[in-house]
Simulated scan of single mutants.
Amino acid sequence: MKKKTVILDNEEGLHARPAAKFVQKANKYESEIEIEFKGNIVNGKSIIGIMSLGAFPGEKISIIASGSDENKAVEELINFLKDGFKEI
């Protein structure tokens, strides 16, 4: 299992459009992807799950991956968030 924390610094946090982009990126990995926010953990490959977190800009979330490509998944997803959801 690999886990890393990041601060959301985009304008929308993890709501509709950013959540959809995150799920699209997360689905490229074989590992199970989860997002942790304020003690809640949701499936990182579920738009509804991600949106249910209500994570706004400036808040910290953790990306958790378990599986064969967990290290790559966490690092690339963190960079994806830091880069403002670019590169799909």
Rank of each mutant, 00 (worst) to 15 (best):
M1Y: 14
M1C: 13
K2C: 12
K4H: 13
T5C: 15
T5I: 12
V6G: 09
I7T: 15
D9K: 15
N10Y: 00
N10A: 07
E11C: 03
H15L: 10
H15N: 13
A16F: 05
A16H: 07
P18A: 10
P18I: 04
P18S: 11
A19R: 05
A19F: 02
A20M: 12
K21I: 01
K21E: 12
F22C: 03
F22P: 07
F22R: 09
V23F: 01
Q24K: 15
K25H: 02
K25F: 07
A26N: 07
A26P: 03
K28E: 14
K28F: 02
Y29G: 05
Y29P: 09
E30H: 12
E30Y: 06
E30V: 09
S31G: 12
S31N: 10
E32H: 09
I33Q: 12
E34V: 00
I35H: 05
E36S: 14
E36L: 13
E36R: 13
F37G: 06
F37W: 06
F37K: 11
G39N: 01
N40M: 11
V42N: 10
V42D: 08
G44V: 06
G44F: 02
G44I: 04
K45E: 05
K45I: 02
S46E: 00
I47Y: 00
I48F: 05
I48N: 02
I48K: 01
I50L: 04
I50K: 00
M51T: 07
M51D: 03
M51Q: 01
M51C: 04
S52E: 02
S52D: 03
L53N: 06
G54S: 05
A55N: 02
G58N: 06
E59K: 09
K60V: 04
K60L: 07
I61R: 03
S62Y: 04
S62P: 03
I63Y: 00
I64S: 10
A65E: 11
S68A: 12
S68M: 08
E70K: 09
K72Y: 05
K72W: 01
V74C: 06
V74F: 04
E75K: 14
E76Y: 06
E76V: 04
L77E: 11
L77G: 13
I78W: 05
N79V: 04
F80Y: 10
L81C: 13
L81A: 12
D83R: 10
D83L: 11
D83H: 09
F85Y: 09
K86A: 12
E87T: 07
I88G: 08
